[in-house]
Amino acid sequence: MNYTVQVIGESVGKDGRKIIKVTKENFLDLMKDLKNQGFDHLSLITGVDRKDFMEVVYHLHSMKTNEYVVVKVETRDYKVPSVAGLWNSANWDEREQYDLLGIIFEGHPNLKRLFLPENWVGHPLRKNYDMKKTQYINMDEEGNDYATFDERGGW
């Protein structure tokens, strides 16, 4: 594949997949470029908490040519441009990563938590998440969940 965007580097991972590293500024252009080249299937979005920065990994696959490519982008302020406009599957994937890792995808149409209640404190998959603080879940009159630290406030 060819792309005009400036990238940091290319390598091949342990599983034999091609990895492209790119800066946050060039990221969206690269994704658009890849989408136009036939990578129509966004398989997976993964955030990896590297303690001092956040790495976001995109697994792209082309249904027609059966090619596979992995795009990695690093962010220090937990903000990455959203690709929900390019692939619909990014919508829920990004919501999940926002929910569990607190990565803010800029330009996402509906960036709400996917699994946890809206007022849950903290993002569980972060390495510095305090697991000792128990949060209890309860349901309000409307049927929506909420979280509370009060031991008797939930189940």
């Binding site: 569990l100 996917l114 699994f115 946890l116 569980p124 998959l125």
Partner: peptide, 11 residues
């Protein structure tokens, strides 16, 4: 609306 069986297997 999902998440009622969430136990965070990844963590």
């Amino acid at each position: 609306v999902i998440g009622y069986l969430h136990r965070n297997a990844e963590k």
